[in-house]
């Protein structure tokens, strides 16, 4: 008998140690669920072992006794024992718990899956806000990179180079082909204060010259025809402080506008990401994109 008790204790300790050795890290977090599960598992093991011991003991030593009920089934009788007190307490306990469940815990129609979801979102947003209230440039860039890898990389590629022309190459502002396409078709979608850009602002050789100049990174002398562009985009192409798109480089305004409105260009269509990212995340993506341009 003593051997079994000692064996049981050794088994419990061994299981505890094994679990801690394999998954000890999980108990370091502020989430209590792992600890709770562990305590539950221990309780099950302990109760099982000691109940088994009790009954093994009883089978060995006990003899049946007591008063039989009148009825019997093919000679098999039943004692008129009272139910074990533990069962009785649990039974009454479940009745009390039922009242708690109906009237206090989960009154009818008071629980909703969607309500729980809404609470989860609120809690998450509050946590996001408190942690990222004043992000530094470094954290913004890191956040931007991870958002980029999830949301943008499927089209623009993990290196942001557009997967061989399947999407915009985000390390470079515009290609010659794109500039020509915008000049020919205009751009109505982005919603800048300057409004829509009409099609056919320049033609033929003028358009060619402008496209070469912009695609080349706006270095050197601007072609004469660029005056048409400069009237809205500014002589430096930077969009006159957010009045119109920056055609010289990516900036925060451009990135957030494109995320909001989507874009249809010569490569294809980019969907709008409105509502999918919060303002901090949009800012982070912009900060990441401007940083990869700087490192070229």
């Amino acid at each position: 008998m003593k051997k079994m008790v000692i064996g049981g204790i050794i088994l419990i300790v061994a299981l505890m140690a094994g679990t801690y050795f394999v998954a000890g890290d999980a108990f370091q977090s502020d989430d209590y669920i792992n600890t709770l599960t562990m305590i539950g598992a221990l309780a099950i093991i302990a109760i099982t072992i000691f109940t088994v011991l009790k009954y093994v003991n009883q089978i060995k030593n006990d003899t049946a006794s007591g008063e039989l009920v009148d009825e019997n089934w093919d000679g098999i009788g039943e004692y008129t024992n009272a139910i074990p007190s533990g069962w009785g307490i649990i039974f009454i306990g479940t009745i009390i718990w039922m009242f708690w469940y109906f009237f206090v815990g989960y009154p009818t129609n008071q629980f909703s899956q969607i309500g729980q979801y809404n609470e989860e979102v609120l809690e998450n947003n509050a946590k996001f806000k408190s942690v990222w209230e004043n992000p530094t440039d470094e954290t913004l860039k890191a956040m931007g990179e991870s958002v980029f890898l999830v949301q943008c990389a499927p089209c623009h590629g993990v290196d942001a180079e557009g997967i061989n022309g399947k999407a915009q190459n985000l390390t470079h502002r515009m290609s010659k082909e794109q500039v020509l396409s915008v000049i020919q078709n205009g751009q109505q979608k982005l919603g800048y204060p300057m409004g829509a850009m009409p099609p056919m602002m320049a033609q033929g050789a003028d358009a060619e010259a402008i496209a070469t100049y912009i695609a080349g990174g706006m270095k050197g002398e601007a072609p004469v025809a660029f005056a048409a562009c400069a009237s809205c985009h500014g002589a430096d192409g930077k969009g006159m402080n957010g009045m119109s798109p920056n055609i010289a480089e990516y900036d925060e305004k451009l990135v957030t506008k494109v995320l909001e409105h989507g874009k249809k260009g010569v490569i294809g269509t980019m969907p709008s990401f409105k509502g999918r990212l919060n303002p901090t995340q949009e800012k982070a993506v912009a900060s990441f994109l401007t940083s990869i341009k700087a490192g070229e």
Partner: peptide, 17 residues
């Protein structure tokens, strides 16, 4: 959040994109 041109590239060869 995906568009016609993306699906076209993707169905032809998913590992391209």
């Amino acid at each position: 959040y995906r568009t016609t041109d993306w699906h076209e590239n993707h169905m032809m060869n998913p590992s391209d994109v």
